[in-house]
Design a protein around this nucleic acid. Structure first.
Length: 265
DNA sequence: ATCCAGGAATTTT
DNA sequence: AAAATTCATGGA
């Protein structure tokens, strides 16, 4: 398929919002929603196998208003020089249940370990198609021993408890609710607090005003806005919402990338 | 060996 | 209400 607006597949996949993929060198293998998808990009040509073009467009939000959001954010003198460093970095719209499980694993962890947890969770508790393993389905009981064997540590208890609460009905409520309602519903689940809830709102529900504040984002914001007294994460969130509004989520994605590249430590 | 990592839940001031 | 502590596990 031919890309009309900027899109960097490699950068977007590696930006910490999606974990179920592997870099095979010449292409990427994505394991999501029972599909093994192979993607590769050369310039403005994006090749897909294992799903149709509509699926790719939805997953990477290629029909959204990316360009317009970039234009608005580019008017921010602090953000502008950061945005231009990462052309084609986009927000995804992933499977809701998989995103919830993924970011429950992300608590006090790191990306390689999260990917390992989800790989093991898929092998031990999920479904299998050929030599590919997929995450367990929502709403079903998970074996606590197997979840623990996926090296999920103290998160195992919450994962087991949450998955039975994630019924089709509950997920449907999440999909139809607005940002505030979705955030509250997510926070009612065990093992999910404001940060993980914001990640789910942003990466699965396309609530673009969500602004997940982790240690990296907090550091970045205090570095970029030293006079703004961003003492706690509540103030960071309020500042971002006030400054970027509906574009806060996309701003966060650039800030997270910038922090990883420049503020290590 | 010691410390920290895309925090959340619980306990203590 | 805010601050401190605890919770597995892997990697630096």
């Amino acid at each position: 398929m031919l890309l009309q607006e900027p899109f960097d597949l490699k950068l977007t996949l590696a930006s910490g919002q999606f974990f179920r993929y592997e870099d095979l060198g010449n292409e990427f293998l994505l394991l999501t929603q029972g599909k093994a998808i192979r993607l590769s990009q050369q310039g403005n040509v994006l090749s897909h196998d294992g799903c149709d073009e509509m699926y790719v467009r939805r997953l990477f939000r290629l029909d959204g208003e990316y360009g317009a959001a970039l234009t608005r954010l580019g008017k921010d003198p602090v953000l502008a020089p950061i945005i231009v460093r990462y052309p084609g970095l986009r927000l995804m719209q992933q499977d809701l249940h998989e995103t919830i499980i993924g970011f429950m694993c992300s608590v006090q962890s790191n990306i390689p370990k999260i990917k390992m947890n989800l790989r093991l969770l898929s092998e031990f508790c999920g479904s299998r198609i050929g030599d590919h393993a997929f995450l367990p389905r929502h709403g079903i009981p998970l074996d606590p021993v197997l979840v623990r064997q996926a090296r999920t540590g103290y998160r195992a208890k919450s994962l087991v408890a949450a998955n039975v609460l994630l019924t089709h009905d509950f997920l449907e409520q999440l999909q139809t609710a607005d940002y505030a309602q979705s955030h509250a519903l997510l926070c009612s689940l065990p093992g999910i607090g404001p940060k993980v809830a914001d990640c789910v709102c942003l990466f699965a529900l396309a609530h673009d005003d969500a602004f997940p504040v982790d240690v990296h984002i907090a550091r970045a914001m205090r570095t970029l806005f030293p006079k703004s007294h961003l003492t706690d994460e509540k103030r960071v969130r309020a500042f971002a919402r006030n400054r970027w509004g509906k574009d806060a989520g996309l701003a966060q994605q650039f800030l997270f990338q910038w922090a990883r590249d420049n503020l290590r430590g």
